[in-house]
Amino acid sequence: MFDLSKVSLSVFLPETSEVEIASACKAAIEKQMYSVSVPPTWVSRVSNHLRGSLVKTTVKISFPLGVDLPEQKFLACLSAIKNGADEIDLVCNMGAAKSEDLLTLKREVVPIVNLCHTNNIKVNAVIEIHLLTIDLLEKTIHFLESVGVDRIATSAGFKGMKQPTISSKDFERIQSFLKSSEKIKLVGFGDTSDDLAVFLKTNVEVVEIDHRKMLQ
């Protein structure tokens, strides 16, 4: 039996029904999971379902590739907090990360970190790790850690982008780049129960799983 207290259930495809959202929240409460990760449109609904439990509402901002303006991301974040978000998954601008444009990353991440920390909300900086060279991955992670994000999330987890899954080797590499090696939100791994078992034994803080896979 797995310890599911590290698991975040993700629910974000447009075709997901409201019944599925409700059942994902119910399962997260029953199994005492870490959070339910959703896009901005469903924050109020999910936050209401989870009220009274310890399960957090995590909101994905600028999904899936982060190619919004910094101002826009800030407004989306503000709105998510107003609607009940307990934690933010901020998808970093991957176009900027790919070109080592740290100024753009700084403009989007710093105000949101300040906003969230003022509200006692954690910020997970999402980077699509397979879009970066190893050198850029290291630089991006160092930068994000230096501006105070709470965790690095390894992918946005959107299958439509057909990105490779995150392997144990990828995970170890990211750990090696972090000063605090446990500050990882693992997203986009193989999604089988064997994969899950492997990662739950590590010191990863949060593992995100698609709700349809998890509830099977």
Binding site: L13, P40, T41, E71, Q72
Partner: peptide, 15 residues
């Protein structure tokens, strides 16, 4: 994926 709230969608359009 059509996942923005109305207010953020409007601001995205304005920008």
């Amino acid at each position: 994926l059509s996942v923005l709230t109305s207010d953020t969608k409007l601001s995205q359009a304005a920008f």
